[in-house]
């Protein structure tokens, strides 16, 4: 029987790259979709707004685990089998898109209507208004929550272990099974998540305080 030593710990540490890969895919993919959703939510067309609301409510009302199972098993309806990484990436992207979309929508809405009107009076097109007037302010407003949600994504990648994808939680399970020392294995996993998430949480707090100070000054 193996004991829990440095090689076992390093095995978990190496799996960190898969946790981070999954996080990056979900954040970038979810971010791009989220931008689109946020813009559609403030669009003029009622049908588009309704459709996006429906999508966002649906995804936000679904446990990520169930979404993950649906993404993992749905392609087999067409006789295609997909890798656990692909399924996890799709599920996390869809999930993040709905939440990031909601965060960014509220940031866009937080900019006073008068700014749209004055930009219009200066003959800026809606796109230019968004690009040069609204977005720069909205991005600053949305930064703390966006970083906060990035931490959520990192933690959510642990669910991929349930469909057998080897990221750090699954690596912890494997080590725990091989050494019969689950406490050490899972505490190492928890410590790694903490080491990655804690600096980001602090960053998010710092951004939030900075935004609050700026808001107080103006």
């Amino acid at each position: 029987m193996r004991t829990f030593g440095t090689p076992e710990f390093l095995f978990i540490v190496y799996a960190l790259r898969w946790t981070l890969t999954l996080t990056v895919i979900a954040f970038v993919g979810g971010g791009l979709m989220g931008i689109l959703l946020a813009l559609l939510r403030i669009a003029r067309s009622r049908a588009l707004r309704g459709l996006t609301t429906f999508y966002m409510q649906l995804v936000q009302g679904l446990p990520l685990l169930v979404l993950l199972f649906l993404c993992y098993y749905a392609p087999s309806l067409f006789g295609v089998e997909i890798a656990a990484l692909t399924a996890a990436a799709i599920a996390l992207t869809v999930n993040s898109s709905a939440f990031l979309g909601a965060i960014w929508e509220s940031a866009l809405r937080a900019i006073p209507r008068a700014q749209w009107e004055s930009a219009d009076a200066l003959a800026l097109t809606p796109w230019k208004t968004l690009r040069f007037v609204i977005a720069p302010q909205a991005i600053r407003l949305a930064m703390p929550s966006t970083v906060g949600f990035l931490v959520q994504i990192i933690k959510q990648t642990s669910l991929a272990s349930i469909i057998g994808f080897i990221e750090i939680t699954r690596a912890g399970q494997l080590v725990s099974n091989a050494t019969f020392e689950p406490l050490k294995a899972f505490l190492s996993v928890a410590a790694l998540y903490f080491a990655v998430c804690f600096p980001l949480t602090q960053l998010s707090l710092w951004l939030e305080r900075r935004t609050a100070r700026r808001g107080a000054r103006t």
């Binding site: 931490v151 933690k155 959510q156 642990s158 669910l159 272990s161 349930i162 939680t169 912890g172 399970q173 725990s176 020392e181 689950p182 406490l183 050490k184 294995a185 899972f186 505490l187 996993v189 928890a190 998540y193 903490f194 998430c197 804690f198 949480t201």
Partner: peptide, 19 residues
């Protein structure tokens, strides 16, 4: 807030019997 719920469940269910 900085560790996943799933890992918390694993530590409590699988880990605590060790002690």
């Amino acid at each position: 807030r900085n560790t996943p719920l799933l890992v918390q469940i694993f530590v409590i269910f699988f880990g605590l019997p060790n002690i």
